[in-house]
Amino acid sequence: MAFQLDARSLQRLQGVHPDLAKVIHRAAALSPIEFRVIEGLRTEKRQRELVASGASKTMNSRHLTGHAVDLAPYVGGTIRWDWPLYHKLAPAVKQAAAEVGVPIEWGGDWRTFKDGPHFQLPFGGYPK
């Protein structure tokens, strides 16, 4: 199911590394479910708020440098946080990354603090 990213998602991709933005655009063409970009580039203040609330565990977030995005499935006109939907979305993002030749990491693959919405460029290939 190909779809176009909405205006808010496009705005939230501003400041995101061009390689990651390319992956997200391609994923929109491949994903079996529609999604929205929830967050891209983050301020240090916003990151501190997320750490304080427990929504993030680090001040070394890839969001601070534009190397990460958070995506959310959009079903029936509503943002959804159900884990099964991320297991439909993540393969499309990974396929998109492979097609455009950009390595990607998914927070849902992490061993601890699984983060379904989070997709990032790896530190190895994309230092700060």
Rank of each mutant, 00 (worst) to 15 (best):
residue 110 W to L: 08
residue 82 D to M: 07
residue 73 P to R: 06
residue 91 P to Q: 02
residue 126 Y to C: 03
residue 51 V to G: 03
residue 21 A to V: 12
residue 71 L to S: 08
residue 70 D to S: 14
residue 128 K to A: 14
residue 115 D to L: 02
residue 57 K to R: 15
residue 76 G to H: 08
residue 56 S to Y: 05
residue 79 I to S: 08
residue 43 T to G: 15
residue 29 A to H: 09
residue 2 A to Y: 05
residue 96 A to E: 00
residue 81 W to Q: 09
residue 83 W to L: 14
residue 107 G to T: 01
residue 36 R to D: 06
residue 123 F to M: 09
residue 123 F to H: 09
residue 50 L to P: 04
residue 9 S to L: 05
residue 123 F to Q: 12
residue 5 L to S: 08
residue 108 G to S: 08
residue 77 G to Y: 06
residue 42 R to E: 05
residue 39 E to C: 04
residue 78 T to W: 02
residue 90 A to K: 00
residue 34 E to R: 13
residue 126 Y to E: 01
residue 116 G to L: 09
residue 35 F to N: 00
residue 100 V to E: 06
residue 75 V to A: 10
residue 63 H to F: 10
residue 88 K to E: 15
residue 99 E to A: 10
residue 121 L to R: 00
residue 113 F to I: 10
residue 128 K to I: 12
residue 108 G to P: 03
residue 84 P to G: 02
residue 124 G to W: 08
residue 49 E to D: 15
residue 107 G to I: 00
residue 16 V to A: 09
residue 122 P to W: 01
residue 121 L to I: 00
residue 96 A to V: 01
residue 84 P to H: 03
residue 4 Q to R: 13
residue 105 E to N: 09
residue 78 T to P: 00
residue 43 T to F: 09
residue 25 H to I: 02
residue 38 I to G: 06
residue 110 W to P: 01
residue 5 L to N: 05
residue 10 L to H: 04
residue 112 T to S: 14
residue 10 L to A: 13
residue 49 E to H: 06
residue 43 T to L: 09
residue 12 R to K: 14
residue 21 A to N: 03
residue 79 I to K: 11
residue 124 G to I: 12
residue 36 R to C: 10
residue 22 K to C: 07
residue 80 R to T: 13
residue 83 W to G: 02
residue 31 S to A: 15
residue 48 R to H: 13
residue 84 P to T: 02
residue 50 L to G: 04
residue 32 P to E: 12
residue 120 Q to P: 00
residue 56 S to P: 07
residue 52 A to M: 06
residue 2 A to D: 07
residue 74 Y to R: 08
residue 107 G to V: 01
residue 44 E to V: 14
residue 7 A to R: 14
residue 4 Q to L: 13
residue 36 R to V: 15
residue 25 H to V: 08
residue 1 M to G: 15
